[in-house]
Simulated assay, not measured.
Amino acid sequence: MKTLLLNKEDVGSLIRMDEVIGTVEEAYKAFNSGQVNQPPYTCIHLPPPRGEIDFKLGYCEANEMISMKASSGGFPNNLAEHGVPSGMGTILLFDARTCALVCVMDGSLITGLRTGAAGAVSVKVLARQNARKITSIGTGNQARMQIRAIHEVMKIEEIHAWDHHPENLARYKVDIEREFGIPVVMARSMQAAVEQADILITTTRGKGSLVEAAWIQPGTHIVAMGTDMYGKQELEPEIFRNAKIVNDSTAQCIEKGETWHPLNQNIITQADIHAEIGEILLGQKPGRETDHEITIFDSTGMAIQDNTTAAKIYRNAIASHTGTTFEFIQ
Rank of each mutant, 00 (worst) to 15 (best):
V102I: 15
N247C: 15
H221G: 05
P218I: 05
V153Y: 03
T3S: 15
M229A: 04
A214G: 08
D248M: 09
S67F: 02
H45I: 01
A100H: 11
F297A: 14
P48K: 14
A243G: 08
V20M: 02
S108V: 10
Q330L: 11
E279S: 04
N141E: 07
A149H: 14
M17P: 03
K29T: 10
Y41S: 06
Y230K: 11
N264K: 15
Q252K: 05
I254L: 09
K312R: 15
N264C: 11
G257K: 05
T259V: 15
V121R: 00
W162Y: 15
R171K: 12
L126I: 07
E236V: 01
I147Q: 01
E293L: 07
P218A: 06
I222W: 05
M190P: 10
F297K: 10
I216G: 02
S108D: 13
I199C: 03
Q284W: 07
V123R: 07
H221I: 03
D54M: 00
T139V: 04
G51Q: 08
I134M: 14
T23M: 10
G74L: 06
T202G: 10
H45D: 10
K312W: 02
G58T: 10
G226C: 08
L126M: 14
E52C: 07
A192G: 02
Q330R: 14
K29Q: 13
E19A: 05
I304K: 03
G116F: 00
D272C: 13
M302L: 15
T290Y: 10
E26R: 15
E19M: 07
N37L: 13
D228T: 05
A70L: 08
Q233E: 05
E9T: 14
T202W: 04
K56V: 07
M186G: 00
I277E: 08
I216A: 09
P262H: 03
T203H: 03
M68K: 01
G219F: 04
L5M: 13
R114V: 06
I199A: 07
D10N: 15
P39T: 08
L6I: 11
D272A: 12
M145I: 04
A143G: 15
Y28G: 03
A213R: 13
I199S: 06
G107L: 01
M154C: 13
M302W: 02
G119L: 04
S108I: 08
Q330P: 14
G208F: 02
N266D: 15
